[in-house]
Design a protein around this nucleic acid. Structure first.
Lengths: 125, 125
DNA sequence: ATCAATAGTATCCATTGGTAACCAGCTACT
DNA sequence: AGTAGCTGGTTACCAATGGATACTATTGAT
C-alpha cells in the first residue's frame, strides 16, 4: 500500500493483484510440477501421472483442468481405443518455465542449507 | 526419471528432491508474500500483518516460524512493554527474492491474458 | 481500577488434498 | 460367451490444512 491510499503494480496488499492470484494458482501442490514436466514436449495423462511422485488421478485432473482454463496448456482428445489424451503447454505456459526454473534452481542450490537450519532449530528448542 | 532407473538433479519424480520440498514450502499461501514484503528491510509483526491482505495472526505466526526454522529469516524479541518483535531476512532468505520476483513479474505480465482465458473457457462450457 | 498496545493463542469451522473404489468404451484372449 | 485389461477419468468419503473470531499476557498510562 502506498501512503496516499492508492495501489500500484506489485502491491502485495491487494488480494487481487496478479502476484497473489498467480501464487495462489501455481502455489498449489502439483501445478508447478506439471508445468515443469511438460517443458520438453507434450505428454499423455498417464505419462504425467507416472512422471510425478504419486498424484491421485482426481487431483491431477483438477490441476490440468485449471491449467487449461488459465490458457497455460491444451488438452487434445483422440477418439481412439483405448482413448488417448495429450496435454501440451501453450506459448504462455511455456513462458512460465523460466521463472519456475529460477525457483527450482534456487531450491536445488539451498536445500542442504535449509535442511541443516531445520536440524539446528529443532535441536535448540 | 531417467530410463536407466537412476535419479538426477531436478528429478521431479522424487518427492524428496529439493524442488519439491521448496515448492511445498514456499507454495503455501503466505510464505512468498512474507519474503517479498521483507525485501526492503526488517518489519514488526503488526507491520507484516497489516501489509499483507488479511492474514489471520495464527497463520502469519505459523508462516514466520517455518521461515525461521528454514533459516530464511531471523526473529528478534525486544523485552519491552509493549513487546516488540522484529523479523528480518537472512542472506539466504534474501537470495530467494530474485527467483520470487521472476515469478511475480511473470504474474503481473500475464494476469490479464489469464483472466481472459478463464472467461473464454467458462463461456465455452 | 481500568484501558490501551503488541504479539501472539485457543477454539472452532470451511476448504482443499488424498484414498480407494468404480465406470465407459472397446479389444483381445480363452 | 465370458472375462480381463487398457486409458482416462469420476464418485464418495476422510484427513489435513487454512481461516475467522475471540481471548490472553504484560505493564505503563489515566
Amino acid at each position: 500500500m502506498v501512503t496516499n491510499g492508492t495501489y500500484e503494480r506489485g502491491d502485495l496488499f491487494d488480494p487481487n493483484c496478479g502476484t497473489r492470484l498467480i501464487l495462489d494458482r501455481i502455489g498449489d501442490k502439483w501445478t508447478a510440477l506439471a508445468v515443469l514436466r511438460l517443458q520438453h514436449g507434450p505428454l499423455r495423462f498417464t505419462e504425467l501421472r507416472d512422471g510425478i511422485g504419486s498424484v491421485a488421478p482426481k487431483v491431477l485432473t483438477q490441476t490440468l483442468r485449471r491449467l487449461e482454463r488459465d490458457g497455460l496448456l491444451t488438452r487434445e482428445v483422440f477418439a481412439e481405443v483405448p482413448p488417448r489424451v495429450v496435454y501440451d503447454l501453450t506459448p504462455m505456459g511455456r513462458s512460465l518455465i523460466g521463472p519456475l526454473t529460477a525457483v527450482s534452481d534456487w531450491a536445488e542450490e539451498h536445500i542442504n542449507a535449509i535442511t541443516t537450519a531445520q536440524g539446528q532449530y529443532d535441536a535448540g528448542s
